[in-house]
Design a protein around this nucleic acid. Structure first.
Length: 463
RNA sequence: GGCGACGUGGCCGAGUGGCUAGGCAGCGGCCUGCAAAGCCGUCCACACCGGUUCGAUUCCGGUCGUCGCCUCCA
């Protein structure tokens, strides 16, 4: 099956043509670690990790690289505000980012380079650009000469003559030129040695250098938030391609943004919820469902209602998985039965949907269709355990791609206390003492268990 | 002002030149002592105006609106 993805440069969904057959390298711009990341920062991470999980399941060999920007103006500012060393703050927040995103249960990228550990490559690339005439030194700073890169603007669609200058500096030859190296300024408590004096790398060159060092001069897929398309990715492209003469990325993958209260969730607007706070008050699956039910290129509305919707969808999946587990009764999955056939169809639909511009919403629709078929069969009550086991196994495998396999985790069985109440309620019902039966149902609810009177007897389901 | 994306039923959210998305909610039914869970059926769509077409929600043009970027931003 062919993998297709939307390429922001070509502005179309295109077949992915890997540099090496069967292998894909994926670079995703990570956060600047000057404070705890918010839920929106988790989206490119989730997109990259889930895409990689799908691709690996499809037989690709995937290498995901995602950087941490731990040298930046905002880090100096945040450290100064706290009265601590900027390197200390960056290290703390980098660790925080790793810890927070790990809670999503999607594993880690294969390589997570930090700028502080990538200076030699950044300096070498800057030197090469100076040597080839694409960059120039100006009073301790180094700037990229945008005028020397004719296709500048092709990715973002920005026209050079229409653009407003990014910042007017006497050090620049042209307003659009951007810094590859910035000389240390007064008040900056950390600097790194370079041929141009102490300073720090510009934001854009970091990613170019780290991507190249981990994945080579040309990479299969370069991802990040759509808000990075300009200027960040445009500048990365210019630097890298000016240096190597090769396309930096074969596919530019941009994810949509998380909206919160009508606007983009962003630290500068202040409308943020920290990822760690979100994960303190909801299970990761809720967040993952919120993301998976929307296409990765769409904006996602982060609101109580949409989170509730996602949680309810998960409840439906969880309930179906629980029922299937019960019906499977530890039988080994077997093929050939009607549920196994339906499951195979759903699996094929799921894979095809994700192969077609990673349409997780369509993939989920296939799984929900399987859930309905499964529930109907379970209602009929005559399915083969091994058949139910197969359907459940397929469901779990597909859900695992988007990080939702946890929905299948066997909840602990009801405690003896709850079972006793349920049995007492059955006795009351047999005596047609429904008032007492309802009291006992309420008591069970207080214990966290819902009683379901199924055709073959009562059952306790976790609330 | 420039560039880009998008406007789908009560809400969210896919997709398609003529044929079922899916989830949540509503309504009717089955099951139930009543519920819950589940199943079946069902209401509610493709912003507006033109054009192309036998036929457009789906292609083209325009209008209006929303969002993102043009400055640090996932």
């Amino acid at each position: 099956m062919t993998l297709r993805l939307y390429d922001s440069l070509r502005r179309a969904v295109c077949d992915v043509d890997p540099l090496q057959a069967g292998r894909l390298g994926l670079y995703v711009c990570g956060p600047t670690v000057y404070g705890p990341v918010h839920v929106g920062n988790a989206r490119p991470f989730v997109v990259a990790q889930t895409l990689a999980r799908h691709l690996r399941r499809q037989g690709w060999e995937v290498r995901v690289v995602s950087n941490l920007t731990d040298i930046n103006d905002k880090i100096y500012a945040a450290a100064a505000a706290e009265g601590i060393d900027s390197r200390e703050l960056a290290a703390r927040e980098a660790a925080g980012y790793l810890a927070d995103t790990s809670r999503l249960g999607l594993g880690r990228p294969d390589v997570e380079p930090k700028v502080t550990e990538s200076l030699p490559g950044i300096i070498a690339m800057t030197e090469a650009l100076i040597a080839s005439g694409h960059a120039y030194v100006s009073d301790g700073d180094v700037y990229f000469d945008v005028g020397g890169f004719p296709s500048y603007g092709a990715l973002s669609g920005q026209r050079v003559d229409e653009m407003q200058p990014e910042e007017v500096t006497a050090k620049k030859r042209a307003p659009l030129d951007f810094a590859l190296w910035k000389a240390q300024k007064p008040g900056e408590d950390a600097a790194w040695d370079s041929p141009w004096g102490p300073g720090r790398p510009g934001w854009h060159i970091e990613c170019s250098a780290m991507a190249m060092s981990a994945l080579g001069e040309e990479i299969d897929i370069h991802g990040g938030g759509i808000d990075l398309k300009f200027p960040h990715h445009e500048n990365e492209r210019a630097q890298s391609e000016a240096m190597t003469g090769r396309p930096l990325a074969r596919t530019w993958l941009h994810n949509g943004l998380l909206r919160f209260g009508g606007d983009k969730m962003s630290k500068s607007l202040g409308n943020v919820e920290r990822l760690r706070d979100a994960l303190d008050r909801m299970e990761p699956e809720t967040l993952l469902m919120l993301f998976a039910r929307a296409h990765y290129r769409s904006n996602v509305d982060y609101s109580p209602d949409s989170l509730e919707d996602a949680a309810r969808s998960n409840d439906r999946l969880r309930e179906a998985l629980r029922r299937a587990a019960r019906a499977a009764a530890d039988a080994a999955p077997a093929d050939g039965g009607p549920l196994a056939v339906a499951a195979a169809e759903a699996d094929a639909r799921f894979r095809a949907a994700l192969d077609d511009d990673f349409s997780t919403p369509e993939g989920l629709a296939a799984l929900f269709d399987l859930v309905r078929t499964l529930n109907a069969a379970l209602d009929a009550g005559d399915q083969d355990p091994a058949d139910a086991a197969r359907a459940r196994a397929v469901l779990v495998e597909c859900l695992d791609v988007v990080g939702l396999a946890g929905l299948a985790a066997a909840a602990d069985g009801p405690p003896a206390e709850a079972v006793a109440l349920m049995e007492e309620r059955e006795a009351a019902r047999a005596d047609r003492d429904f008032a007492r039966a309802d009291e006992l149902r309420d008591a069970l609810r207080d214990l966290g268990w819902a009683v379901q009177d199924l055709p073959d007897g009562p059952e306790l389901a976790p609330l």
